[in-house]
Every structure is written in structure tokens, then in C-alpha cells.
């Protein structure tokens, strides 16, 4: 963003600008975290050992594309359940924003607030972008043992779709798929 760029003019269309970090690669143990999902509830990743977990980092509630991406995943919850997989959306927005965004888009899966310290979980997964101060549009599929089995970073302006997630779930060992 140029110094004189007005607020709201963050350039979401040139994701190749700087890749400061490397996303966690398959075979890496997924860093544990606890993040709030509502004003009075929190989610701890390690509580989901025993089932696959999908982490979908995205830049922001309400921005273009994100809504489409989370809306798309919302249509595939029963397919994810077929693999006994739990989906979480993560951004640096706070719980009240998530709450309103979920209600507006009729989302039926938890959004986690990587809000304080800001972006700490995104950094741990290697998908934080300093300049806009948001997460990348990044996907992780974590197996039942808590190991990253697949990761993908999409250009920030591009909805990565659901095919990569479905393929990754399909390739998990079958005893985890249930």
C-alpha cells in the first residue's frame, strides 16, 4: 500500500508482492492454539485430535471474495462430515465481527478470532502478511494425529475453491475418514 493510499484501498490483487513466510508444509506438527469463537467460547485445536481438521485462513470478514469462499465451504459441511472433518475459518477480525458475518451469511461452522495477539496463529502457520496486517488466504488439512497433511496458499484475490480440501481429505488414511 502506498503511503498516501486511503483507508479501504488495501491492494488485495497483488498477492505476489512479498511472501515473507513459508506456510507450514505437510509432515509438520500443527501448532496448537486456543482462540475465541464467540464472546464467551473458545476453541483449542488439540481437543480435535482423533479427527481431521480443516483450517481456512482468510484476510477479512466482509471483504469481497472472502464471503464467497466461506459461503462455498458452508455448502460442503456435509461432505466434510463424511470425512469426520471439522472446519474452522480464521481471520484477524474480532468475535463481534465474526458473529455478525456468520449471521449475515448464514454460516454453520465456527469462525475463530486471531485477534489478540493479532495474527499470532497465522504467524505460527507461516501465513501472516505484515503489510495489510491480515492472514493470507491459506488452507491446511490436519490429520487425526495433529500433523499437517496438506497446505495451500491462494492468491489473495482468488477464491481457492473446495477441490484441494476434498482431495486432501480423500488422501488421508482411511481409518481417519471413518
Amino acid at each position: 500500500m502506498t503511503p498516501d493510499a486511503a483507508e479501504g484501498e488495501i491492494d488485495y490483487t497483488h498477492p505476489e508482492l512479498e511472501a515473507e513466510q513459508t506456510p507450514l508444509q505437510p509432515g509438520t506438527e500443527a501448532p496448537d492454539f486456543t482462540l475465541p469463537t464467540t464472546p464467551d467460547q473458545a476453541v483449542t485445536l488439540s481437543n480435535f485430535r482423533g479427527q481431521p481438521v480443516i483450517l481456512a485462513f482468510y484476510p477479512a470478514d466482509w471483504s469481497p471474495v472472502c464471503g464467497d469462499q466461506m459461503g462455498l465451504y458452508n455448502e460442503f459441511l456435509s461432505e466434510f462430515r463424511d470425512y469426520n472433518a471439522q472446519l474452522f475459518g480464521l481471520s484477524v477480525d474480532g468475535v463481534w465481527s465474526h458473529d455478525a458475518f456468520e449471521a449475515d451469511r448464514n454460516l454453520h461452522f465456527p469462525l475463530l478470532a486471531d485477534f489478540e495477539p493479532k495474527g499470532e496463529v497465522a504467524r505460527a502457520y507461516g501465513v501472516y502478511r505484515d503489510e495489510p496486517g491480515t492472514a493470507e488466504r491459506a488452507l491446511f488439512v490436519i490429520d487425526a494425529e495433529g500433523v499437517v497433511q496438506w497446505s495451500y496458499v491462494s492468491p489473495v484475490g482468488v477464491n481457492p475453491g473446495v477441490d484441494g480440501i476434498l482431495d486432501a481429505l480423500e488422501e488421508l488414511p482411511s481409518e481417519e475418514n471413518q
Binding site: D68, N159, P160, G161, V162, D163, D167
Partner: peptide, 11 residues
Amino acid sequence: FLNGAHSGVNA
């Protein structure tokens, strides 16, 4: 719907 999803339909 499913073959679309597997082909990369994203919107």
C-alpha cells in the same frame, strides 16, 4: 454439484 466442486468451481 460434486463434480463441479472437484473441478474447481469456486463461485
